[in-house]
Design a binder for these strands. Structure first.
Lengths: 257, 257
DNA sequence: CAGTGGTCTAGACCACCGT
DNA sequence: CGGTGGTCTAGACCACTGG
C-alpha cells in the first residue's frame, strides 16, 4: 500500500504541467522545475508535502527519468526540495526563500520597488596600480576605468561604491553610469557575469564616507570587496563597496549537496 | 588541425585517473571530479588551461559521457571550470578559491591551523520567546537551549556567539560546548545540516561586546544571523553572532548557472 | 565544415528505508 | 519485501563556435 510516512501518503502535484512546450527552446527540465517552484512559492505545495516519485511522474509526462530528476535536482540545489533515499522527495520545511543570485545593488533596489539613484563622484581613466592589476589579472600600468559612485535609495544615501574596469570597458560614459547600474550596463554590452568572489567585512567609516553616507564619524560601515569574471573567465570588474549598515545587509542561503 | 583558441590547443589532463576504483562506494563522477579539482588547486592545471572534451575523456577512462559530464559539472558549480558550447572546457582564469561551504567558525579556524578555544558564558534551558520561536518554527514557550559563547583564536577574542537550539538538543552539555564547535557536536549526533539562511550586517558594538572582544567602545562589529535546517527540513539552530572585524570576514564565491 | 557542450532517451543495477 | 532515490550506461539529436 501507500506508505504513510509524514501524515501525507503520497502527494501528486496536480497537472499544472499542461503547458509544457516540447518544441520550445526552453529545456524541458527547466520548464518542469519552474512549474514546481511556482507551486511551492504559491503555496500550492505546502512545506513538507511529499512529491510524486521520479519514475511515475516521468511516465505521466512522457519524459525520461533523468529529465525529471534533473528538474528536481535544480530545486534541491536551490534549497526548495529535500530528497532522501528510500523515502522520497519533500518540499523543505520552514521558510521558503530565494536563492542567492548574482545581482547588483541597483537591481535589488529596483526589484524591491525602491527608486535607486546614483551620484557619479569620480569617472576617470587611470593606469592600474598593483592592487587593481592583481585583482583584474592585468599588468600594472594598463589603463583602467575608475569610477566612484554614491548610491541612494529614495533619496537616502546607501552606499559608496568604488569600481575598476579593464580596458575593454573604459568607454563607458558618465551619463550611462549615472543613470543605470553597472551590471545592467555590462549586460547591455553582452557581458555575462559567471563567477564572482566577494569578501564581506566591517570597519569604521572614513571621514569622507561618513560625510557621504550621512552617518556618525567613525561609525560602523559594512564593506564588500568583489571581483567578477565573465563567461570567458576574464576579470570584468573589481569593486570596493561601503554600505550604511542600518539600511543594508547581505542575505545568503547556503545549500549542502 | 586542432583549433588554437587560447595558445593552448587541447590540454589533456595527464592520466592521474589511474587510481579510480570502480568497486569503491565513492561514486565515479565524484572520484573524477576530486582528481581534477586537485590538479587545479595543485597548479598542474593552470588557469585558462583547456581540458580534454567530454567524449574522448570518457572513452579513455571507459566511462559514459554523462558520468564524465557530471564530474565536470560539479567543478563548474564550484566555480573552478568554465564551459562554453562549441569551445570547450577551461579552468577558470584568475584566482582559484574554495567554494562557500556550510561550515562553522570552529572548523574554519581548525583547518586554518589556528587553535580555537571557547569560553562558555551562558548555558541554560529557557522557554522560547517570540523571535526564537519564529526562527525555529516552534511554538513560543517551548523549551530551547540557549548558549552564549566567546570564541578565541590563539588567545585572541574573535566572536561572541549566541545560539538557540530546539528541545531535541537541550541535553548538549556545557563540557561538550566548551571543547568543540557546535556543528561538530551536531554532526556527532548524526544531524546533517542541509540548508542555512544567513544575514550579514554591521553595527556598533554594545558595551558588553566591546569588553568581551577587547575592542573600542561602540567600535564596528560584523554580525551574522543564521538559521540552519537539517535534511528533514527541521530548524536545528538559530544564532546571532558578532565578530571582530579586524580579524574576520566572510568570503563568498557566487556562480551563475 | 568539424568540434564542442546542451539536452534527452530508455533502459539498468544498487543502497537505503519502512513495513 | 516493495518503493524510493543514487548512480551508470550507450547511445541520439541539436545549437553554437571556430576556421
Amino acid at each position: 500500500m501507500a506508505a504513510a510516512i509524514d501524515a501525507t501518503p503520497t502527494t501528486l502535484p496536480e497537472d499544472l504541467f499542461l503547458d509544457v512546450d516540447r518544441t520550445s527552446a526552453i529545456p524541458l527540465y527547466f520548464q518542469i522545475a519552474t512549474r514546481i517552484e511556482q507551486a511551492i512559492v504559491d503555496g500550492r505545495l505546502a512545506p513538507g508535502a511529499r512529491l510524486e516519485n521520479e519514475v511515475t511522474l516521468g511516465q505521466r509526462l512522457n519524459m525520461s527519468r533523468p529529465t525529471i530528476r534533473r528538474a528536481m535536482q535544480e530545486l534541491v540545489n536551490k534549497g526548495l526540495l529535500v530528497r532522501r533515499r528510500g523515502i522520497g522527495t519533500q518540499v523543505v520545511h520552514g521558510p521558503v526563500t530565494r536563492k542567492v543570485e548574482l545581482t547588483s545593488l541597483y537591481d535589488d533596489l529596483d526589484r524591491g520597488g525602491q527608486r535607486p539613484a546614483t551620484n557619479l563622484l569620480v569617472h576617470e581613466i587611470v593606469p592600474a596600480d598593483d592592487v587593481v592589476a592583481d585583482r583584474l589579472s592585468i599588468a600594472a600600468g594598463e589603463p583602467v576605468l575608475h569610477v566612484r559612485r554614491l548610491r541612494l535609495s529614495d533619496g537616502v544615501p546607501l552606499a559608496v561604491m568604488e569600481n575598476y574596469l579593464p580596458e575593454d570597458y573604459t568607454d563607458l560614459t558618465a551619463d550611462a553610469l549615472a543613470s543605470r547600474g553597472l551590471y545592467q550596463l555590462l549586460r547591455g554590452r553582452g557581458t555575462q557575469i559567471r563567477v564572482a568572489q566577494q569578501r564581506i567585512g566591517a570597519r569604521a567609516a572614513t571621514a569622507e564616507e561618513s560625510r557621504l553616507l550621512e552617518i556618525k564619524r567613525s561609525g560602523p560601515v559594512l564593506t564588500m570587496d568583489r571581483t567578477a569574471y565573465d563567461t570567458f573567465g576574464k576579470a570584468v570588474e573589481y569593486g570596493h563597496h561601503c554600505y550604511r549598515p542600518d539600511n543594508y545587509s547581505f542575505e545568503i542561503t547556503l545549500v549542502n549537496n
